[in-house]
């Protein structure tokens, strides 16, 4: 295409010399370039999922699915191996539940406090400070749990073992609090002021306004933040690997050493397990299980946000 316009010339046309040919070329190159980058990330994801699937199939060729689901011990490295995935799931479930019990009130209350009660000046400092917590490396949290929280708990209850699900769960909770707080705060802050004013104009108190109008309006964002935090807790590795011990135990006792799915994967990955061995493929089976759980959580979150999101002008 030429730079000449299809339309009749106008006055002062000499002043306007857009290079439409080059613009069009650049446009086309850019589209291709962006498509390539988008494809790379999609292809990477597919590659990861595929390798998970292939190794998992290898695993299930040797271990039948029913044993995976019904064995009550997880001992793939022993001479008489057992493969009860629920041993690992119960540990992940336990630490995640403790974490959410800690993070939900902490995160939600700080979100409400920040967005509704804190003066603007305080909010300006407090929110970044809270978000800073999210930047602490999880390995630091892990040692914090092992070397500070556990001794503290054991000074009250010396019968609790040195590695336990409780302190791992507590610290895991602290580590996901900023996620809930920051995302919920964004959701609450985004509720338009006209809604608050509408509620006050009906004679509602501040608390009634927050509980009856603001929080329901921000519900989809809050729930999304919680689900995201749960899926982070489920996938979190360092804290539980360091503080919860690596001893697969079925049950929900928070005072004994346990091994979560992620902790088991770390244990095997760091060891000298030969590739292709059963122990090696077992981490892919565990990885697939973990992936399915977080995928389910993300789908629920996605569905929830779509279903309950309010659109404001």
């Amino acid at each position: 295409m030429t730079n000449r316009s299809f339309f009749p010339p106008m006055a002062d046309d000499s002043l306007w010399q857009p290079n439409r040919g080059i613009s069009r070329l650049v446009q086309r190159v850019i589209v291709v370039l962006f498509a390539i980058f988008a494809l790379i990330s999609v292809a990477t994801t597919c590659g990861i999922v595929l390798s998970l699937i292939f190794e998992t199939i290898e695993f299930f060729k040797k271990v039948p699915l029913w044993r995976f689901l019904t064995d009550n011990q997880w001992t793939p490295l022993f001479s008489n191996p057992q493969y009860g995935i629920f041993v690992l799931i119960s540990a992940t479930f336990l630490t995640s539940v403790i974490a959410i019990l800690v993070a939900l009130p902490l995160g939600l209350f700080s979100a409400v406090c920040l967005s509704e009660y804190a003066p603007a000046g305080v909010r300006k400092w407090l929110k970044p400070a809270l978000e800073l917590l999210a930047g602490v490396p999880t390995v630091v949290y892990g040692y914090f749990a092992l070397l500070l929280v556990t001794p503290l708990i054991r000074s009250f209850a010396p019968w609790i073992s040195g590695f336990n699900g409780l302190s791992a769960g507590l610290v895991l909770g602290i580590s996901i609090t900023p996620l809930i707080a920051a995302l919920s705060e964004d959701a609450i802050y985004a509720v338009p002021n006209s809604l608050r004013q509408g509620s006050y104009a009906l004679g509602a108190t501040k608390r009634e306004t927050i509980v009856g109008v603001v929080l329901p309006a921000a519900l989809s964002g809050i729930v999304a933040s919680i689900i995201l935090a749960v899926s982070r807790a489920v996938g979190e590795t360092m804290i539980v690997a360091i503080a919860a011990g690596q001893n697969p135990t079925l049950g929900l006792n928070p005072f004994v050493p346990i091994a979560t799915m992620t902790a088991y994967i770390v244990q095997v990955s760091l060891g000298d397990t030969p590739a292709g061995s059963l122990a090696y493929t077992s981490i892919f089976a565990v990885g697939t299980t973990l992936f399915l759980i977080t995928l389910a959580l993300n789908i629920v979150s996605f569905w929830f946000v779509r279903r309950f999101q309010e659109k404001y002008e």
Binding site: M1, F7, P8, W16, P18, R20, R24
Partner: peptide, 20 residues
């Protein structure tokens, strides 16, 4: 038609049209 030329003609660049 803009000055007698069909603006939905295939050869028209909308970018050029919107300048005018």
């Amino acid at each position: 038609f803009y000055h007698g030329k069909d603006i939905y003609d295939k050869v028209v660049d909308p970018v050029d049209l919107r300048r005018r």
